[in-house]
């Protein structure tokens, strides 16, 4: 039974290309993966920052200067935005897991809502961190 029609189906990532029209929902799904993978970099940077702090003032200066340089700042801003987006979209997924909010109009609305909330919370975090 399970062997029926194997091979004709598109393989992942089938959401890009001719088989699937890009829409808000699939774009956000893709963004969830990209932000997840991207935050691997932020997580590794965080561990290096704590290691720098553990090794003492000199190594802390080196690591902290790197993290707060303009390129480090850019990565940080991206990481904060990625964290909020991934967290909010993750909660959306948890709600979906309970079987709620799965109608197309509802997913469009919640998608737009988390995008707006991501922008607000990223800005708020940036302001509060000084």
């Amino acid at each position: 039974m399970a062997d029926v029609n194997r091979g004709n189906r598109p393989l992942s990532p089938f959401m890009l290309g001719k088989d699937y029209r890009l829409q808000l929902n699939s774009a956000l799904s893709l963004a969830h993966r990209i932000t997840g993978i991207g935050m691997a970099l932020a997580a590794v940077m965080t561990v290096f920052w704590f290691l720098g702090l553990a090794y003492g003032p000199e190594s802390f200066r080196t690591v902290d200067d790197l993290v707060t340089s303009w390129i480090g700042g850019l990565v940080l801003l991206g990481s904060v935005a990625a964290l909020w987006f991934h967290l909010l979209n993750g909660v959306r997924h948890l709600v979906w897991d309970t079987g709620h909010g799965l109608e197309i109009e509802q997913t469009d609305l919640s998608g737009k809502a988390i995008l707006a909330a991501t922008a607000v919370l990223t800005l708020l975090t940036w302001i509060l961190s000084y």
Binding site: W49, G56, R61, T68, L87, T125
Partner: peptide, 22 residues
């Protein structure tokens, strides 16, 4: 689920420590 409260509690003290003195 665990990461929702943990991220909320972690982010501000951490963000404030970045760029601070040792």
């Amino acid at each position: 689920i665990a990461l929702v409260p943990l991220a909320l509690l972690f982010i501000l003290p951490y963000a404030r420590s970045l760029g601070a003195d040792f």
